[in-house]
């Protein structure tokens, strides 16, 4: 985490310096994002020498981000189809999701991601922090267990891989 912040600040300063000082590059948003990514990945490669853990974790963070975006988009399309057609096919249910995540950061990240994915809404957490109650839109009779496993294998496993 500390390494990430230091690298982020260094990359931001390098981009600022390059774009303000040099004359031959255009001063546009796309260019600055490209330069930022290039500098950041160079710094990430250099972390192989002094911070192995950080080196392993950054690809996982990126894959979690892309997985989340894909999920957000697909589920939104599904809900859009359901809203636009006259009948709805939803069978809402509140299920109890047993948690492996234990610290504040893990639980809040997990529940925020679940809430941002359409079709599932984190409601509350039980007193002893072992169960997260999730409101699902498409939970048919035999389907709820499968959906719970999907949430656990999709989001929770990836988050735990990053934080632990």
């Amino acid at each position: 985490m500390k390494t990430f912040i230091i690298h982020f600040i260094i990359a931001a300063f390098v981009v600022n310096w390059i774009l303000v000082q040099q004359e031959w590059l255009e001063f546009t948003a796309a260019m600055s994002i490209l330069i930022f990514l290039a500098v950041f990945s160079l710094l990430w490669l250099s972390a192989l020498l002094y911070d192995k853990r950080y080196f392993i974790k950054i690809p996982k963070v990126v894959s979690l981000l892309f997985f989340f975006l894909k999920e957000l988009f697909m589920a939104n399309l599904k809900i859009a189809y359901d809203i636009m057609t006259p009948r709805y096919f939803m069978n809402p249910a509140i299920v109890a999701l047993p948690l492996q995540a234990s610290t504040d950061f893990e639980i809040s990240l997990l529940s925020n991601m679940i809430t941002l994915t359409p079709g599932s809404l984190g409601v509350d957490i039980s007193e002893d922090r072992s169960v997260l109650y999730v409101h699902l839109l498409y939970a048919d009779e035999g389907n709820a267990e499968k959906l719970k496993q999907e949430l656990k294998n999709g989001f929770e496993r990836r988050i735990l891989e990053i934080t632990r």
Binding site: L72, F73, N76, I79, I83, P118, G119, L121, H135
Partner: peptide
Amino acid sequence: FFMLVAAIGLLRLPDFYTRMSAITKGATL
């Protein structure tokens, strides 16, 4: 398009919780 879907869903869906769960994401996206 997603904003319009969220607005129609806000008007059409049957109860508070389904509305809540469809709206926040549609509007955010």
